[in-house]
Amino acid sequence: MQLLSETTSDEELVVLSLQDPAYFAALIERYETKIQRYLMRRSSASHEDIQDLLQDIFLKAYVNLNGFDTSLSFSSWLYRIAHNHMISWYRKQKIRTDGRIFSINDEDVFEHLADAFDLEHEHWTEVVKKSLVGHVQELPEKYRDIILLRFFEEKDYDEISDILQIPPGTVATRLSRAKKRLQSAFIEHL
């Protein structure tokens, strides 16, 4: 087995994984935390369910490695699998994908949001933060997905387009609408 460095690209790891599944472990390790965090933010599944989902997602990615579209980044491709798998898991469970999105202790998230809306978040009270959490969670699913991927997963428009399989123009439109909804909600509570 070839020695891997941090500079070994995802695409190289995909090629190596197809020759020897042991290399796939490196890809899992690179993305395990990110995907787990995404699932936790996007879903309200239990810790055990998240672990099961994670395992299924990586196995699905492995089985479909030959279908990896090299015009996308591996990250977008994996997030797409995770997103679609989570949605279909929820459909099977027949429950809503409400998700936790984030908690009021997640300072990074508030910083991102504050930057996006040109607001000073240091002065936000716990009440404002709680109401913000509520407002984001009340957003329709299509807007929540965009907010989550843009501000929390820090994906650009093209990556979001590739993950959600919608045109980049639609990503921009939905993001703008979601921001408008949140902005008016902020104003009410600031």
């Binding site: 599944p21 042991a22 796939f24 472990a25 899992i28 390790e29 395990e32 672990q51 994670l54 395992q55 990586f58 196995l59 492995y62």
Partner: peptide
Amino acid sequence: TKLSQSILKKI
């Protein structure tokens, strides 16, 4: 990690 080990084992 534990996850990668369990996935490789399953594979």
